[in-house]
Write a protein that binds this DNA or RNA. Structure first.
Length: 496
RNA sequence: GCUCCUAUCGUCUAGUGGCCCAGGACGCGUCCCUCUCACGGACGAAACACCGGUUCGACUCCGGUUAGGAGCACCA
């Protein structure tokens, strides 16, 4: 096994946005391929499974490509850059499937079935009601070749079924160990609607073989699909790859992760302002851990640490609070100039950031004083809007600290105005210094508790921000500048 | 219903027979810092599903029970 080339693939079907569960599967495949402790430099392949003509759309192919790139998961082989063409799209490989389909038909390992869908559905219901595993009853499995030819010539609707051998199928799963299924319970599976419309179970086998995939790493929902796929490998004379079935991502109620409990599209998290670093880190730790107490990893560190043996067997609840924690961590670690670039689109979209109205330097300061409060980038808007507005909108009552009366608040603001008017060097440190002195003086004069600076600072901070929560008045004043700061104090005094 | 998978704090997990009256992280609570929020710091509550074996000794091995999940398509 050590000599075998590692080749893994992520094979989504473009029938909707890239699901976070899918993204995690892609991540694990990528990590497995790139990890240097594996059998060598593996290849990670992206294959688009768009055999479902009705539901597959090009825009979803493009979204898959974009989001994977955004995460930093790069593939060695995959569809063309526009997502529209190339041999890594199943829709472009129809002749290949047709060839193998014909082979199976010829060898009588597959056969035409003329049963109507409604008829099948009725039987299925009846079987389940009887308490047996629903499976195809084999009605068309031994039709004479004359009858098949006749039916086909008459244009009777038909599908192609694969003969499932009545025996036990055993295989080794890298995360779960030996697994055995009784294929006799399965029933003959439909592998194509016709020669030109092959279905998943068939195409996945053909492609994984042709693309020389060494390890199939996928979600646990495919575990019970594995035996029938193995049987198809055998019928085709192929050797099947090794398997690793990853635990499912779960809703808080422990059902399979789905919409209605929250967002499941990676793009939704992207839009809300989750950083790819945070999402990668978060997803990696869902169903895997390094066996140490370390919890924070970059993608390249994960590549180094990863081993499939440490993958978890049980499902993992998608805990958004933990994602938020990681995201705020990575936001705080971002270089200031990069964080500004990331936040700017949100401010622009909110109409706060208008080109040329504010210097880059100032904008960076705004982001810097706010970043420790940000769980996701989109929050920059509510956190900083007051910096950009001309007029603040807040209730007079918000200015009140503790049991201050209106005249006390007015006195505090007047004092602030006086103190700040006299400052020559305007920066946060200087402002803080003089205001601390002023606060002591104010409390003494008013008979307020000596150590409680809130009597001076709270009204000031509210006057400058209009908010209950905000950065310190020193930081705000620094960014606002002297003129604006004094103007906001004057506005506040007018309210009293 | 049938088949398969799974089972340690609320959540993600460490733990491969004695190092564990179970460790870390998120979340939660209290306190400190502090004009607020946040950051940071300290402390705290919180789990081996159950029942039988095996063993000198089980969270760890085996069997069963229970619970949860997935699959059983002319979707992937």
């Amino acid at each position: 096994m050590a000599t075998k080339n590692i080749r893994v693939r992520f094979a989504p079907s473009p029938t909707g946005p890239l699901h976070v569960g899918g993204a995690r599967t892609a991540l694990f495949n990528y990590l497995f391929a790139k990890n240097p402790h594996g059998a060598g430099k593996g290849k990670f392949i992206l294959r688009i499974e768009d055999t479902d003509k009705e539901r597959s759309e090009l825009k979803w192919v493009q979204e898959i490509i974009n989001e994977l790139k955004w995460l930093g998961i790069e593939w060695d082989e995959g569809p063309d850059i526009d997502g529209a063409s190339g041999p890594y799209k199943q829709s472009q490989r129809m002749e290949i499937y047709e060839k193998y389909l014909k082979q199976l038909l010829q060898e009588d390992k597959a056969y035409y079935c003329f049963c109507a869908q409604e008829e099948l559905e009725d039987k299925r219901q009846e079987q389940m009601a009887r308490g047996v595993a629903p499976k195809y009853d084999g009605k068309c499995s031994h039709l004479s070749s004359e009858l098949v030819k006749k039916n086909l010539a008459e244009g009777k609707p038909a599908v192609i079924r694969f003969r499932i051998a009545n025996k036990k199928v055993k295989f080794k799963d890298l995360v779960r160990g030996e697994i055995e299924f009784d294929a006799g319970l399965l029933g003959d599976v439909v592998i194509a609607k016709d020669l030109n419309a092959p279905l998943y179970h068939f195409t996945v086998v053909v492609d994984d073989y042709l693309m020389q995939i060494s390890h199939v790493i996928r979600g646990e929902e495919h575990l019970s699909n594995t035996p029938r796929q193995i049987l198809i490998y055998r019928a085709l004379g192929f050797e099947h790859p090794e398997y690793a079935h990853l635990p499912l991502l779960l809703n808080p109620d422990r059902s399979k992760l789905s919409k209605r409990h929250g967002d499941v599209a990676l793009a939704d998290y992207h839009k809300q302002g989750y950083l790819p670093e945070a999402i990668i880190n978060f997803m990696a730790l869902l169903g895997w851990n390094p066996g140490t107490e370390r919890e924070v990893f970059t993608l390249s560190q994960l590549v180094k640490e990863f081993s499939i043996e440490k993958a978890q067997k049980g499902g993992a609840v998608f805990n958004i609070k933990r994602l938020d924690f990681l995201n705020s961590l990575y936001i705080r670690e971002k270089a200031p100039e990069k964080l500004v670039l990331l936040c700017a689109p949100y401010l622009k979209a909110a109409g706060l950031l208008v080109k040329g109205q504010i210097s880059d330097d100032k904008l960076q300061k705004i982001v810097e004083v706010s970043k420790q409060r940000m769980k996701k980038l989109s929050e920059i808007v509510e956190l900083t809007d007051f910096f950009f507005k001309d007029k603040l909108n807040y209730e007079k009552n918000l200015l009140k600290w503790d049991k201050m009366k209106d005249e006390d608040i007015k006195g505090a603001l007047l004092l602030c105005d006086k103190i700040l008017s006299n400052i020559k060097i305007w920066d946060a440190k200087k402002v803080e210094e003089v205001l601390f002195e002023g606060a002591a003086e104010f409390n003494k004069q008013k008979g307020f508790p000596e150590k409680n600076r809130g009597f001076l600072l709270w009204p000031l901070r509210v006057a400058l921000s209009g908010k209950e929560f905000s950065p310190s008045p020193f930081e705000i004043a620094d960014i606002l500048g002297k003129e604006n700061t004094l103007a906001r104090i004057a506005e506040a005094i007018k309210k009293l």
